[in-house]
Design a protein around this nucleic acid. Sequence first.
DNA 1: TTACACCATGGAGTAGACTCTAAGTCAAGG
DNA 2: CCTTGACTTAGAGTCTACTCCATGGTGTAA
Lengths: 129, 129
Amino acid sequence: MTIKEVSDKYQLSTDTLRYYEKVGLIGPISKNKSGIRDYKETDLRTIEFVKCMRQANMPIDKLIRYMNLYKEGNKTLEDRKQLLVEQLHKVEKEIQELEKAKERLCYKIDLYDHQLLEKNLSMEKETVL
Amino acid sequence: MTIKEVSDKYQLSTDTLRYYEKVGLIGPISKNKSGIRDYKETDLRTIEFVKCMRQANMPIDKLIRYMNLYKEGNKTLEDRKQLLVEQLHKVEKEIQELEKAKERLCYKIDLYDHQLLEKNLSMEKETVL
DNA sequence: TTACACCATGGAGTAGACTCTAAGTCAAGG
DNA sequence: CCTTGACTTAGAGTCTACTCCATGGTGTAA
């Protein structure tokens, strides 16, 4: 799979894909004789995971640490789990904050609806009189 | 209320508070004869709103636009509501993504627990034999 | 009155995560 | 053969949102 296809599939720019590879988040991706990347199934799975974790706001350096632990094999299970647990807590906290903001937004939008209604009513009155 | 007190109350650094004021997100804050800020009740309410919207990842320039509309008064009700509705959608989408990431994290943590269990069991066996 | 923590300003610097540019290679179609 | 478009690299540049710094004023407690 070419970089363009991967880019389209996961909505990540080719620059971002190369950047992720450069910093060690994915790959190294195998290349054909003329140096062009060919993404394999396992690469795609890594990319999907990375994308998901990035959407969960996991910082890139933490993700890199995770990937490095992964490469070190079985003896890092505990550490890797620890990183994920930490991240889970962060995600839960963030969800809470977003829910709070959401409530507030709904409340304010509601207020605006009322104000707009009143404004329109008073305009109508003016028109009638 | 001094800037330090506000900073403590809302967990925003004094630098951030001055920065918010400089870019027009809050204030201008009134100052005493020697130039020291004195935050009033209305300032605090604005700050709390700003903090909440920032936690909802509303970009600063959008927030500034909102504040400017607010200052323009009643005729901008519709536009302001529109901004909030947009932001609400963004927040809802983000919550969805975080929930997805959360599920994935839980799933992976579960897998790690199983793997760790197995690892420990096999170590015990080794110890016994 | 001196020490201390706090306040002010303008402007420079930083972190994180990309994003863009320049300069060049390669394969396919006209 | 030439053009076109996608690919490569290294490295510079950008954006957002702060955060820090130098320099100097303020206020109050001992």
